[in-house]
Amino acid sequence: MSAGTYTPRPGAAPVGRMIAAQALFETKMLLRNGEQLLLTVVIPSLLLVLFSTVDIVDTGDGRPVDFLAPGVLALAVMSTAFTGQAIATGFERRYGVLKRLAASPLPRWALMTAKTLAVLVTEVLQIALLTAIALGLGWSPQGGPLPVLLLIVLGTAAFSGLGLLMAGTLKAEATLAAANLVFLLLLVGGGVVVPLDKFPDAARGLLELLPISALSGGLRDVLQDGAAMPWAELGILALWAAAGLGAAAKLFRWE
């Protein structure tokens, strides 16, 4: 390289361009990671196909796929916004990526915006795939798109807050273990593939307050039963989102 190559010409790229570049980069990293794909794509798809075609769990009246598709969509949102994001962010923190980015021109809020966009892009891909599979299995969704969109956005906010809270406070290994464990527990106890009315009444009352139950229940109200707006579920998700994001903003440690 010739003289003058390194002559200083410092400056940040326009913030919109930085966010777009960062979101694209984070999405690439998410989609490249094999373990992440197992959680976000393989497991939800397998559950959908398996439980729709083999009579393992009694899903109540109606066709199994009409019950399962909303649950699996909720699971997909959780797998990306919570599990995947917690694990990825935990290791980014551990390997100094967040620290290094903090010294770059990218402001913190822009990084968080980009992360959210990456999560949303991944969710769109997941939802497209799962919807195609469900339609292939004979799914006939009811209801309108607006409540579904609202549920997914609030669900994403709630799970992101909880995922970032975990990633920003625990060690990366602890986050890895805990995020997977929570994924598994909520998969079973969150109305994803097992209807909550299979649980005893006392337990059910509590389980219904979980964000995953609110999301799967709300999606089912709309997509299976044609409800106009599942206010109760939206309310629960909004509370989780406020609590999770608020706690993450306060407690997240960058190093």
Binding site: M18, M29, V97, R100, P105
Partner: peptide
């Protein structure tokens, strides 16, 4: 935006390729 930083260790996504990481950092600058 005016300083360049090399940490004593780390700072790169473990799954990122060398070239794409550098290209990405470049995109954050004017």
């Amino acid at each position: 935006p005016r300083i360049g930083v090399m940490l004593q260790s780390g700072g790169v996504y473990s799954g990122a390729r060398a070239e794409e990481m550098l290209r990405h950092m470049a995109k954050l600058h004017a």
